[in-house]
Design a protein around this nucleic acid. Sequence first.
DNA 1: TAAAAGATCCCCT
DNA 2: GGGGATCTTTTAT
Length: 192
Amino acid sequence: MSREFFSRRAVELAPDLLGKVLVGPDGRSGRIVEVEAYEGTDDPASHGHRGPTPRNRSMFGPPGTLYVYRSHGIHWCVNVVAGEQGTASAVLVRALTPLTGVEAMYAARPAARRDRDLCSGPGKLCAALGIGGDADGQDLVDLPRGPAVRLLDDGTAPPRRPAVGSRVGIRRAVERPWRWWVPGVVDVSRRR
DNA sequence: TAAAAGATCCCCT
DNA sequence: GGGGATCTTTTAT
């Protein structure tokens, strides 16, 4: 993936990430089927809207950087940084359909009973792929040596008309329709 | 130094 | 459909 691919607003990058393949450091992978955009300092729901802190500094890095944060003290969530450096815009990856390493995913997620439970949430998919805090700040364009998170384009096009709705689990700027997903794949019945 | 909230998940009824 | 687990980060005092 080129730097240019990530160098645009999060609301433009986000729907284009649908269909891409996210690969964890141990090779387990899944296809992205749900994303949310966070527009940095202009977005009161974004971690970056008040400016840089030790936790969110990766959001302010160059496009194509990973921003991995801990949620509720227990889960990891992964974002792909968009925009220009310093804008703190990013796309949260919310759900995948498992592709490879499914057996290892079950080992990493004992609570999952079916394949669709493995990666059907931002915390779940990080556990399933083995993405944690050590991936925070990693570049997806110039990959580091050794184990790394990767983002692949296997030729699958994003849906022509993805489903659109409001973001999940936020208190502010709830009305912005900045969540996109592949219709019919993700269970959105329990989401506002 | 303290307090509260949080881009969640899972189990229970 | 509801609530508890669990703890880091941030912000206020």
